[in-house]
């Protein structure tokens, strides 16, 4: 009788534990889709997609408004993407910034981007030329030598971060996005701009 009661008690305790466990498990936040074009969530100290979009938009506008992309003979410049140096404390994939810039520049119709050289290459440019040695391919359809177009301009940049401690113990993080267009023939910079972004938040934790 006593044994039976202990068993029943244990069963009851176990059921309560399982129930509490299930309740706790169901208490987590729900997953939500976000509108990447209109994300109104709280700002973060690190860089998020909104910062990259804002920086890229501002830079493109500045570049297109300048005369840098106006070629004297009316044709279009060939632009190669060079290095975008990440000098921040964030593990950023800088292609987040350059992909949008490349797309917007191409869509503007003011220049052509090359994927044959630079930091964002299409490996098939070289791979396709290796088919010259293959008997399996119709050699008339294989790219001839001397067809690749060399770039006229190079687009390089840097993202830099500076953290400052404020008197009230908070910290201010400043991000500097710098882009520069160089004429590869002369080595002269023909356009340059900088977008800065500031964030202020708790000083208790690291900003990454």
């Amino acid at each position: 009788m006593e044994k039976c009661k202990i068993k029943k008690d244990r069963k009851m305790k176990f059921s309560v534990l399982v129930l509490v466990g299930l309740m706790l498990a169901s208490c987590g936040p729900d997953t939500k889709n976000i509108d990447m074009n209109d994300d109104r969530a709280d700002a973060v100290m690190a860089l998020d997609h909104r910062d990259f979009t804002k920086a890229a938009d501002t830079m493109i506008k500045s570049m297109l408004n300048s005369n840098a992309l106006n070629k004297a003979d009316g044709s279009r410049f060939v632009v190669a993407l060079s290095t975008i140096k990440n000098d921040t404390m964030q593990r950023i994939d800088t292609s987040q910034l350059t992909a949008k810039i490349r797309r917007d520049l191409l869509n503007s119709g003011r220049c052509i981007m090359t994927t044959a050289v630079g930091t964002q290459q299409d490996a098939l440019n070289i791979e396709a030329r290796k088919l010259r040695e293959s008997a399996e391919f119709n050699q008339e359809t294989v790219q001839e030598q001397g067809q690749l177009v060399a770039p006229d301009l190079s687009l390089a940049g840097k993202i830099f971060q500076r953290n400052i401690r404020l008197d009230n113990g908070d910290q201010q993080v400043e991000y500097y996005f710098t882009l520069m267009m160089t004429d590869l023939k002369t080595g002269l910079a023909i356009w340059e701009d900088e977008v800065t972004m500031g964030k202020r938040g708790s000083g208790k934790s690291a900003t990454w």
């Binding site: 990440n86 000098d87 921040t88 404390m89 964030q90 593990r91 971060q161 953290n163 401690r165 113990g169 000083g203 690291a206 900003t207 990454w208």
Partner: peptide
């Protein structure tokens, strides 16, 4: 480079 920047920032924060 990112990690070196972080180490540098940690040294800056340590004093406080």
């Amino acid at each position: 480079r990112v990690e070196l920047n972080r180490a540098y920032d940690r040294q800056r924060r340590a004093a406080d």
